[in-house]
Amino acid sequence: MASLTNRVKVLEQQPLSFMERLYLPAIFKGMAITFSHIFKKKATIRYPEEKRPFSPVFRGLQVLNRDEEGRENCTACGLCAVACPAEAITMEGAERQKNEEHLYREEKYAAKYEINMLRCIFCGLCEEACPKDAIYLSETFAPSNFTRKSFIYSKDELLIPHPINDKEGYDAARVSRVEKLKK
């Protein structure tokens, strides 16, 4: 049969020689390899004590952002919810009243905002869809829990701490990822 390309390499398979048929040299070679691995550096990271540094593109738990004055960015536009492939996000919008200007940045805001962490696949599409820089994925895990209930995160759990009232918490939550997004 004519070969399809000129890169065909015909392998000549010779019968095993006597030494090869003994298999013992090959076995000893293999054992030498495994033995040498005893002294190699271990790849294991002992998790709770040691932590692997997160990659800058790591996508963890969602955080709802506030601006410098501590007003919520989210306007309940629903783009995150429509972008979400797992349909994990739900929300309800409301109109900002006269005395609520210090709470919400725009005239519409998310009165209710929920992410079902059991559904969330941490794909980051909500972050990409958000036109208001209101949601981003932080570098933390969603903590494990015993009840399904506790995995439905409402605004209380998701909102970033207030930048003026709780400066420390805000700075801690504002990880390098936000810094990078700001640029």
Binding site: T34, F35, H37, I38, K40, K41, K42, A43, T44, R46
Partner: peptide, 10 residues
């Protein structure tokens, strides 16, 4: 474990 570059039970 050590032959597979791991740590093993600890």
């Amino acid at each position: 474990a050590v032959m597979q570059d791991r740590v093993g039970p600890n």
